[in-house]
Write a protein that binds this DNA or RNA. Structure first.
Lengths: 176, 176
DNA sequence: TTAGATTAGTCGCAACTGCAACTATCTTAC
DNA sequence: GTAAGATAGTTGCAGTTGCGACTAATCTAA
């Protein structure tokens, strides 16, 4: 059936690879891509099949559920690094299902303040434990200290790519 | 302009989060997804704009370039965990551009043996150093030992999700 | 005040990709 | 040998998503 998937390479051998060849299996961007897809698929089983949510919808739910106050679609778009048109469609779908509601912002009538309905909050509360359990399941191959280390290393890369703000930056923006 | 992106949360605080709330910024699946997208985008600048390759095409190129012998589309599909229809279309596009060529396999006329043309090999040789440099650039925020550690942790998760074969499995399949 | 720039959100369009059906070929079982 | 099942690869179709244009509202600067 399947042939060997790592032709001539072994994860463990730390021989320096030639500059003129690239082993996909050791190439971090590819590995991240594949891992991300696999992890997403594993989680999708929790919220897609069971609750009929797709990824953008889940992100809206997660952002609104985590916050106590209402926020704009633009804010969700920034937070989740998801295109505003994608967020817009997700919000529309969630409003139709009465999971999210929005109110005009009198202070700036371009934007709407979004928040979970009671039904949306209930859905959120039901879904979260499942997802956290799934996350722990995926990370269960790591020890507690390895998990911390992994999170810290991810954080370093994220910060260097400016995917998250440092505390100082966040403070500065909250300050004025 | 932008409001703070991590409302009320700090990466560094290691307070145990409540089970009923989930901070996207600490949720590993989300972080992987976002990081993967960002890293892919950073690399795409190298092969998309400059060489007109999309992700599936790059994967075909990378798989064929790494191997010395020809292989089937199915093999590439397995290796890269990319759907066979996607690989099929990528191969078609690369053949039109004379980057890849294929020959019938007399032993099994359902499949074709794929390999890089001279032009394709030249493209590969030109592209690889750029991509490896970009990868190093992205990982330059980590020390050498941190990079090793990160790779090892990725490997653990990959193996637990059966994204890669262990050496033993690969050996077993090569053996018969 | 007012013109020009900026921002929030929506929507049409096009590109991409997974699914599933299809053809051609090979393998297995009888 | 033949029928049933499996496999390689292609393609039509539909769902998703990013881009960019658009409207409406706000901000800026003279």
């Amino acid at each position: 059936m399947a042939t060997a998937l790592t032709p001539g390479s072994r994860e463990e051998t730390s021989v320096r690879r030639k500059a003129s060849r690239l082993d996909l299996f050791r190439f971090v961007p590819f590995r991240l891509n594949r891992l991300s897809a696999e992890v997403s698929a594993a989680l999708a089983g929790e919220y897609e099949a069971r609750y009929g949510l797709d990824v953008p919808e889940w992100r809206v739910l997660a952002t609104l559920g985590f916050r106590n106050d209402a926020c704009s679609a633009q804010y969700i778009s920034d937070c989740t690094r998801t295109h505003k048109s994608t967020i817009s469609r997700a919000v529309t779908a969630l409003m139709e299902r009465q999971i999210v509601e929005r109110v005009e912002n009198a202070a700036d009538r371009r934007e709407f303040r979004l928040r979970l309905t009671r039904k949306g909050r209930a859905l959120y509360e039901e879904l979260i434990p499942r997802l956290l359990r799934k996350e722990q399941e995926i990370l269960s191959c790591l020890s507690a200290s390895e998990r911390k280390l992994f999170a810290a290393l991810l954080g370093k890369i994220e910060r260097s790519l400016e995917l998250v703000q440092t505390s100082q930056e966040a403070d500065a923006k909250e300050a004025y």
